[in-house]
Write a protein that binds this DNA or RNA. Structure first.
Lengths: 336, 336
DNA sequence: GTGAAAGCGCTAACAC
DNA sequence: GTGTTAGCGCTTTCAC
């Protein structure tokens, strides 16, 4: 049978209050009493029941994370990094996967806000902020991760998307490229919008052709890049910007399969969702935009605990910066 | 303020029992009463408190998953697939990441078995079954995932490792390869042990040189393959088997960087942790061992719910089979 | 320095 | 067909 705090109290010859205070360090307990309590705990093999505790205190010591795609290494790494921080602070992480499906996100929001978690990290797939907001109880701690909305209602942690795209397009133009194609992610996402806006701005500023047919959208899943690539090649692009890591790695492989070599045959700018030595083997000869993925996860963890533990703290919109690493031309060195 | 079941009962003019039975469909309630109850719920915006409920019933509707590396796509996909099944059954998934660290696994076991979850999926990094077993309370529902121990104490879901390795080594031998190198994962894991055993058996059966220096171990993290590869090349291997997907993809990229082309220069057998069209671009010219990753996740989900919801069910050790897809020689067709 | 006891929100046995 | 109520295991106020 289950061992409860009263069993411990009885065996130790003290009250349940004392046992509770002893294990939680929440008021003074004499050394002698402590000893008796711990001894009883050992003898009975007592473990405090987490759900009774969270029921009583209202704190679950658990954060929920609504993600669009766990199997995507970008989110896998963010999750890892957030979990790492949260577990060090004594919190657990509940994962809910939406597969970029808005209904699934709604369901998960409803479930997770119903007393299951203390706060929520959301990398939302919603097109409409209202739709998201409507499901969040007033005052519920939320941090938007990676994907934001143009409102100040919740804290957010994201990555600057404008600058690296703008820079990379300018650089392509400077190299003499005139027909720069771009493959974005889902059009409804803030990340995609910002990236496409940066592309448009740079194209205009550099005096490039404004050809809307060079702007295509994938769905960030693995198989969405090749058809876009085929169309861009048809349309005579001399360079391509791929706005998302998974699609980018598929792009490189797909082009290689067609005998098209990056840099030699076609200039490529590619988002990279993680930064490791190993992946440099894939990404040579490609201009890379490297997102600070681990920092993003950690920052998300920090922010949500701020919200949860210090509700008086102001909202914070934190924007991390990606590194832009153009493939070095002869005589150039790397830049961040 | 928090709206409770009594608020609803009061407004609807019924008892809390009726409200509870109404929302849970747990005894007959007249249509009329139902209407009143739901109306009151809507008016007050009532949501049942999940932690009160699980405290009362003892069911958390939550499964824990202890994983060695969330950011590895192999586990990412297993998690996705398990979560998919579990959420459809009304369960949540708590993730704990160990980064292949045994102490972290111990900590997580202690935390998760203390009334937080109804059952536990474990892809253990332990070297010793006792060490794992000691932390699991008697009768606690557990399913071992991917990595097993030679005991019948818990249900398990894993992948057959022996046969595909054995077959692939034989095939290399048949192609005239004499010095076949192999890179395994962490030596303590069951998966690694089985794969290396299969390699040894096949090498012996095919009359190959038994050179222990051709057996190397990585740690399944990204950067562990290259040093192993360097050593195997030094030692004059004419073919290499890589026992883990992440290391395998790095292997291909690394060799390419050295100007070594699979098949033409060196035969390669490679575990692939997922099966998608996209990744075929990477894996052409390589003999692939494709693990049924999604099935593994789903099966893990099914098994743990069996344990949780039908404790009388017998233990089950389920072994899924990998597909072996040799790179087709001229005139050959694919095989599974 | 410690104890007694209320009560968190819900479910379910028992009663009618 | 519905109501009353005990009590899950814990924390915490109030009391001494």
């Amino acid at each position: 049978m289950k061992v409860t705090i009263s069993d411990v109290a009885r065996l130790a010859g003290v009250s349940t209050a004392t046992v509770s205070h002893t294990i939680n360090n929440t008021r003074y307990v004499s050394g002698d009493t402590k000893k008796k309590v711990y001894h009883a705990i050992d003898q009975l093999g007592y473990t405090p029941d987490a759900s009774a505790r969270s029921f009583r205190t209202g704190k679950k010591k658990t954060i929920g994370f609504i993600v669009p795609d766990i199997s995507n290494k970008f989110f896998g790494t963010i999750i890892e990094s957030a979990e790492n921080y949260l577990s060090a602070q004594g919190y657990h992480l509940i994962i809910a996967n939406t597969k970029e499906n808005m209904e699934r996100e709604e369901t998960n929001l409803r479930l997770l806000t119903a007393g299951l978690v203390d706060g929520l990290l959301i990398a939302s797939t919603m097109d409409d902020f209202q739709r998201l907001d409507a499901l969040i109880p007033a005052g519920f701690p939320v941090v938007l991760v990676d994907r934001t909305f143009g409102t100040q209602k919740y804290s957010s942690v994201s990555v600057s998307n404008f600058q690296p795209i703008y820079r990379s397009v300018c650089r392509l133009a400077a190299r003499g490229k005139r027909r720069i194609g771009i493959i974005g992610g889902l059009p409804r996402l803030s990340t995609t919008k910002e990236r496409i806006a940066a592309y448009r701005a740079a194209a205009a500023d550099c005096g490039l052709v404004q050809d809307e047919s060079l702007i295509l959208y994938g769905d960030s899943m693995e198989n969405s890049a090749p058809p876009c690539l085929d169309r861009l090649l048809e349309r005579g692009c001399d360079s391509i910007v791929v706005c998302q890591g998974l699609m980018a790695s598929v792009t490189i492989a797909y082009l290689r399969g067609k005998g098209i070599q990056p840099h030699r045959d076609l200039d490529l700018v590619s988002f990279v969702d993680y930064d490791t030595h190993a992946y440099e083997f894939y990404y040579d000869q490609v201009d890379r935009i490297i997102q600070p993925v681990e920092e993003l996860g950690r920052a998300a963890g920090e922010q949500i605990l701020f919200q949860v533990e210090r509700p008086e703290m102001p909202l914070l919109e934190r924007v991390l910066t990606s590194a832009y690493r153009p493939f070095p031309e002869a005589g150039e060195s790397e830049s961040a």
